[in-house]
Design a protein around this nucleic acid. Sequence first.
DNA 1: AACACTGTGTAATAATATAACATTAATATA
DNA 2: TATATTAATGTTATATTATTACACAGTGTT
Lengths: 135, 135
Amino acid sequence: MSKMHKERTLTKNQQIIFDLIDKSPEPLKAYSILFNVQKKGINAPLQVYRALDKLVEIGKIHKIESRNAFIACHNSSCQVAKATAFSICEICEKVTEISSAGLSKYLANFKDKDGMKYSKYNLEFFGLCKKCNTR
Amino acid sequence: MSKMHKERTLTKNQQIIFDLIDKSPEPLKAYSILFNVQKKGINAPLQVYRALDKLVEIGKIHKIESRNAFIACHNSSCQVAKATAFSICEICEKVTEISSAGLSKYLANFKDKDGMKYSKYNLEFFGLCKKCNTR
DNA sequence: AACACTGTGTAATAATATAACATTAATATA
DNA sequence: TATATTAATGTTATATTATTACACAGTGTT
């Protein structure tokens, strides 16, 4: 077997919460997640936040900071949450993860005035999605 | 008089809150602002949030989304909050607004897979600042 | 005057997130 | 196997961030 990505086994709570986010067509908020998993035995905000923290840490989901919401990672190249870019529609709130080799290369190599490089970034673009743009 | 940037006159609350943020060496959170301006007659969260919203809207301050904090704009070229970039030190939490013509040009012209351009963006870089990096 | 618009003041509450503590499960390694 | 260690869980309480709803004041129209 070749040296491939180590698939971490999720714990029960992590799996429940990841499944929910992964199936969702839109970013989910922590308390909306909570309400949706209460039937599965997850009762408290902290249980949700702990799973979310870990899932973000291992790159299975991303947090959309401007919306306080979470989305599954659909970018096979980002095993860790260190370089994220999204487009956000200001009308319908549709969020899409951007995977552009050019963009990620540009940002990963970006240096500030002092020549400083950074280990992580998060970029959120805002505008109108195709559908909302032509309405 | 030439066609220069129209300096909007801030209202009393807006001015009080802008002054506080503008003098601060670090991003300020809404409730920390509230505590600091109570002696000036601003008593309620909503008064703070309303001023913050307006100040963000007219580009006098920016919100650091990942920190829920507000910083004065020190980038003369951004009269409106439509294209922002920051570096954030993960140790000391120092936040600096990045003004790079190259970066802003690259991002302003960025098109996604569908050729879609976006009207706004917010970019947050994370890493260690110079000081923390050499400690 | 009547209207629209923007901002203010206040109280109440909603939404987001963490602290603190006790317990249990999983992993590692002696 | 025992035991030490780390990671995850469960629960209660609480802190932090942000908005809703309503009454009113100032300013500039028409």
